[in-house]
């Protein structure tokens, strides 16, 4: 054993690896920080409450991201309520219920492959299936479902990884006490794997929020100066889902449009919209991290 014969060399290798790891982290975080600083420097002058509450305009200093923020949030909401329950349920089924045979093997391979399908393909699929075949129009619902499908494999894979990390003894303990399979999942497997599942959810939603290509394919707009109808109505039934039918735009599309305008003042708007997009992503992540922290606290093995 070469390594065992040279304890000093081993220690040196250890230190070198530590140094390399630290350098890589600094490099990647530094790049992110530089990008953020650059965005902030270009966009800070435009960031104001007015920018957040104005509709797009041909006048760069009056233009804002109101419709894009609302559009992004609405689409993300639909994506979250479709992809997360479906993805987690599929993950649980594949790990806890499905028999390990060739059929599940095929499903597993397919899910892994789906995670690698380029987003534009999902857009084309959604255009054919959701917009034309199912007649859902070019709406928030279509966009949310498209992105939901896009990130579904990520959620499934993350859920399975999280569940697999739970020691088999936990399950056996539950069964020994007479718990049914569902009770075991509900009271043990799911709570204990929650932090891993939430990490997967963060990754999935962060991927979805920046997507532009599939949304352009299904017909996201560029100029829209009104909001979808409110989900809450003053008269019974007090809840309305008509906002799902509404045309929409999202932040990345608004940014892209501004970047390509001739007037350089629009480029500052694009940077400011970038900062807004980053803040939404970061606050989404913060929420998930908070939930993860709380779910970890309750675990007592």
């Amino acid at each position: 054993m070469l390594a065992a014969a040279h304890p000093r060399r081993r220690r040196w290798l250890d230190a070198a690896f530590l140094l390399l790891g630290a350098a890589l982290i600094v490099l990647s975080l530094g790049t992110l920080a530089a990008l953020l600083l650059d965005l902030l420097r270009d966009g800070l002058s435009r960031l104001s409450l007015e920018f957040l509450t104005s509709f797009p305009s041909r006048k760069p200093d009056q233009a804002g991201v109101k419709s894009a923020i609302v559009g992004t949030c609405a689409v993300m909401f639909v994506t979250a309520v479709t992809a997360l329950p479906l993805g987690v349920a599929s993950g649980i089924y594949l790990e806890e219920y499905a028999r390990k045979n060739w059929r599940t093997a095929i499903i597993e391979i397919n899910i892994a492959n789906l995670a690698g399908v380029p987003s534009i393909i999902w857009g084309l699929m959604a255009l054919g299936l959701l917009v034309y075949a199912l007649g859902l129009k070019r709406s928030i619902l279509t966009a949310g479902l498209t992105l939901g499908l896009l990130v579904l494999p990520i959620v499934i894979v993350a859920t399975r990884e999280a569940i697999r990390a739970i020691p088999q003894g936990i399950r056996e303990g539950a069964y020994a006490l007479g718990a049914s399979r569902w009770q075991t999942v509900r009271h043990h497997v799911l709570p204990y794997s929650m932090s891993g599942i939430l990490t997967g959810a963060i990754i999935a939603m962060s991927r979805a929020i920046g997507e532009t290509a599939p949304l352009i394919t299904i017909g996201a707009l560029t100029y829209i100066a009104f909001l979808p109808p409110s989900p809450v109505t003053p008269s019974p039934p007090f809840v309305s889902l008509s906002w799902l039918d509404s045309p929409f735009t999202v932040l990345p599309i608004q940014m892209f449009n501004w970047v390509s305008r001739p007037d350089p003042r629009f480029h500052a708007n694009a940077a400011a919209a970038g900062v807004v997009l980053m803040s939404i992503t970061l606050s989404m992540n913060a929420l998930a991290i908070l939930l993860r922290y709380r779910s970890r606290r309750v675990i007592r093995w």
Binding site: R58, G219, T222, Y223, P229, T233, P236, P237, V239, S240, L241, S242, W243, L244, D245, S246, P247, N257, S260, R261
Partner: peptide, 27 residues
């Protein structure tokens, strides 16, 4: 009721002009 509300709201967008096409003409 929620579903009824959805269909009641489907009448939305009546006075809507829909435009799409070239990025050159867009501005």
């Amino acid at each position: 009721l929620i579903f009824l509300g959805w269909f009641a709201g489907a009448a939305f967008g009546q006075a809507l002009v829909r435009i799409d096409g070239s990025s050159t003409v867009y501005p």
